[in-house]
Design a protein around this nucleic acid. Sequence first.
DNA 1: CGCATATCTTGACAATGTAAAGATGTGCGG
DNA 2: CCGCACATCTTTACATTGTCAAGATATGCG
Lengths: 193, 193
Amino acid sequence: MSDGYHHGNLRQALIDAGIKIINESGEDGLSLRKVAAACGVSHAAPYAHFKDKEELVEAIKASVNEQFMEELEQAAAGAKNAEGALINMGRSYVTFFVRNPDYFRFLFGSQNIIAHPRPDKRFKEDYPPFTLLKDTYQKYLKEKKLKKKKEEQELDVIRLWSSAHGLAAIACMPGVETSFDWEEKKIWAVLLR
Amino acid sequence: MSDGYHHGNLRQALIDAGIKIINESGEDGLSLRKVAAACGVSHAAPYAHFKDKEELVEAIKASVNEQFMEELEQAAAGAKNAEGALINMGRSYVTFFVRNPDYFRFLFGSQNIIAHPRPDKRFKEDYPPFTLLKDTYQKYLKEKKLKKKKEEQELDVIRLWSSAHGLAAIACMPGVETSFDWEEKKIWAVLLR
DNA sequence: CGCATATCTTGACAATGTAAAGATGTGCGG
DNA sequence: CCGCACATCTTTACATTGTCAAGATATGCG
C-alpha cells in the first residue's frame, strides 16, 4: 500500500522532508515543489494534505516546536527542585537554538510566529513552553515560600522568558559564535544574575 | 532631468518605496517588481542600482537601522547620566519595535540579520546600536566608579542587550498586545529589576 | 462487485527574480 | 558643437514557484 500511486503516509513524509530542507538550506530553500520532489511525488500532491504552503509550514513549525518542548520538559524534569528547573530550562532554551540556529529564525522569524496550538489564540496563553515556564515559576514560588502580587509575578515570568529568548536571539546571529562562545557556564552566568 | 527616461534618484526612491510596502504589507509583500512599479519604472530598472533583490533589501535594512539608531542616540542623549541613558535606551529599544513590529521581523527575522555596516563583520563589533550600548555601559561604570573584569563586563552588556531584545521580541509577537500592554512603566519595570 | 471518496498526476496560469539585448539620455574629450 | 563612452532604463525571455482545475488511480464500504 505504500508504493505506486498512493504513498502511505505522505503528510508526515512532507513534514519530515521540509525539516530536512530547512536544516540544509534554511527556510529560503523551502518550496512546495522541492518538498514534493523530495518525497518522490508530483508538485500538486501536497494539496491533498495541506490547503496552503502556509499550512505545511505551520505543520513543520508544530513539529519543531514539539521537539523544542520535549527538550524543555526534559531539562525541567532533570532538576532537583523548581529553581533548578528554571535554570535548566533557560539553558536548554539557548542551547537548543544554538545547536540549530535555522530553527530559531524559522520559528520566530516570520509573521505568524507560533502556530503550534492555534494561531488565533494568544501566545502567552497557548504556547506550551510558556505554560511550562509559568507552572515551574509557580512551583518555584511555593518552594521558596514567596508571596508576590499577580502583577509582579507576570513581570517575573516575562523577565525570565525575555532574557532567555533574547540570549538565544543574539547567540543565533551570524558572526557571533566566534567572538563569544556560548558554552554552558556563560549562558548560565547570563541567565542567572 | 527627473522625468522621462531618467528618474533622477531612483536608488533612494526604491528604498523609500520598499519601506512603505513593508509598513503596509510586511516583508512578504515586498517584491522587486512591485517596488519598481511603485516608482513608475520597469521591473528590471532596479538592476541598474542593485545587483540583487537581496542588495535592495539590505539597503532598506540599513535605512531602517539608521532610523532605529537615531532613536537610540536620542534616548541616550536625553538622560542626565549614563545610568539614565542605559534605561532610556532599553525603553526605546522596545518601544521602537512595539510601534512598528514589522520592522523587528524585517531586521532580525531573516538569515543575514544585520547587514548595516558590512555583512562580513561580526555583529557585536560592528552593529552601531551595540557599540552605543557598550560605550554607554563604560560611562556607567566610570560614573558609578565600579571596577569589573573584562569578562564580567561583557556578560553585563550581553545581559542588557538580550533582555531588551527579548522583551522586544515578545512584545512584537502577534496576539500579545491585548493581554499585556507594553506601556512605559511595565517596560521599565521589566528592564530595570 | 460497484461506487464514493481520498489521493495523486498532468497541465495550465500568474507572480516573481533574473539575465540578455537594445534603447535613451548624460556628460566629457575633442 | 560633435560624437562617443557610459549610466540608466526598457523590452523580451526564461526558470522557479504557488495555486488551481480536470482527470486518473487506488481504497474501502455498502
